[in-house]
């Protein structure tokens, strides 16, 4: 099963899961960054666990469930996690982002309320050269808190809310969480003076 669809294929033994997803299923959201499991850009969930698809043979995934970034948004609506990435500024060039999303998804599924250390541990296998990570860690924290807040608030419609990444919603719910990984970050000064 790939993103909920049964896929049947005959593949050469040497084909990686990454190649299968990208070249056979055209799920190009999953990226190749190094091919040796060091960068995390190809992170997908294999039976709900994050793995680097470049170091899994496609045949090894026979009979397993595979989830990729393409399965994260439901009906064209961003998940809370995806919105959190957009709203915190966790996305720059975006090449590491699909892998980051899947690492975060794996974490939040096994622990919807992770500690800061658990967030770092879960995300540290994904390299990013643009953002300096702080916003990404914030995004995962924000997503966890926002989902918890929604659960507490009442009936849930999955984890999906809204179609527009409106800055107010997630941030508003979690104002104090916003800068957890950027302790001390000062607000922008407008006047040029302290």
């Amino acid at each position: 099963m790939v993103n909920g669809h049964m896929e049947t294929a005959s593949v050469p033994s040497g084909l990686t899961l990454l190649e299968f997803l990208r070249d056979r299923l055209y799920l190009t959201g999953t990226k190749e960054g190094c091919g040796i499991g060091e960068c995390g850009a190809c992170t997908v969930l294999l039976d709900e666990k994050p793995v680097t698809a470049c170091l899994v043979l496609a045949v090894e995934a026979d009979g397993c469930t595979v989830e990729t970034v393409e399965g994260e948004a439901a009906d064209g609506q961003l998940s809370v996690l995806q919105r959190a990435f957009v709203e915190t500024g966790a996305v720059q060039c975006g090449f590491c982002t699909p892998g980051m999303i899947m690492s975060a998804r794996g974490l939040l599924r096994r622990d919807p309320n992770p500690s800061d250390n658990e967030i770092v541990e879960a995300m540290a296998g994904n390299l990013c050269r643009c953002t300096g990570y702080a916003a990404i860690l914030e995004a995962v924290r924000l997503a966890a808190v926002a989902v918890a807040a929604q659960r507490a608030a009442g009936p849930l419609t999955g984890e999906t809310v809204g179609s527009q990444p409106a800055a107010e919603t997630l941030m508003g719910e979690t104002g104090t969480e916003r800068r957890r990984f950027l302790r001390g970050a000062e607000s922008t000064r407008k006047d040029g003076r302290r």
Binding site: L27, E70, V91, T97, K190
Partner: peptide, 23 residues
């Protein structure tokens, strides 16, 4: 100008829809 407008490309990027050259 001067406000934290969110990047619209981020939507393509968090969903995997963004196409890079190798895609």
């Amino acid at each position: 100008v001067g406000t934290s407008v969110l990047r619209d490309d981020a939507i393509d990027k968090v969903t995997g829809a963004a196409r890079y050259t190798t895609d």
